[in-house]
Computed example of a mutant assay.
Amino acid sequence: MTIKDLKHPGLFAAGVLFGTAGIKALSSKDAKKLYTNCTAAVLRAKKVVMDTVTTIQENAEDIYADAKQINEEREAAEEAVEDVAEETAEEAVEAEAEDTVEA
Rank of each mutant, 00 (worst) to 15 (best):
A103N: 10
A21F: 02
T2L: 04
K29S: 07
E98A: 07
N37S: 10
A40K: 07
Y35Q: 02
G19S: 04
A65V: 15
K46L: 05
K29Q: 07
A97G: 10
L11S: 15
I63Y: 07
I56N: 05
A89C: 13
E86C: 11
V48G: 01
A13I: 06
G22S: 02
C38A: 15
E94G: 00
E91N: 15
L43E: 01
R74W: 13
A65G: 14
I23C: 02
Y35P: 02
A40C: 11
E82R: 13
F18G: 04
E102H: 05
G15A: 03
L43R: 01
E79F: 02
Q57S: 09
A92I: 12
D51M: 00
E61W: 04
E61Q: 06
E79T: 09
A14V: 02
P9C: 11
G10W: 00
L26N: 02
R44S: 01
E79A: 12
E102D: 14
G10M: 09
F18M: 12
E78V: 07
I56P: 00
A85Y: 13
A80D: 03
E78I: 05
V93R: 13
H8N: 15
L11P: 03
D30R: 06
Y35W: 06
I70D: 14
V49Y: 02
A85H: 14
E91W: 06
A67P: 01
A92P: 00
L43M: 09
L17A: 12
G22Y: 00
N37R: 06
G19K: 01
I63R: 10
K24R: 15
F12C: 11
A31D: 01
T54R: 03
V53G: 01
K24S: 08
D62F: 09
E91L: 09
E102C: 05
K7L: 09
N59D: 08
K47L: 03
D62V: 11
S28A: 00
A67W: 14
A41R: 04
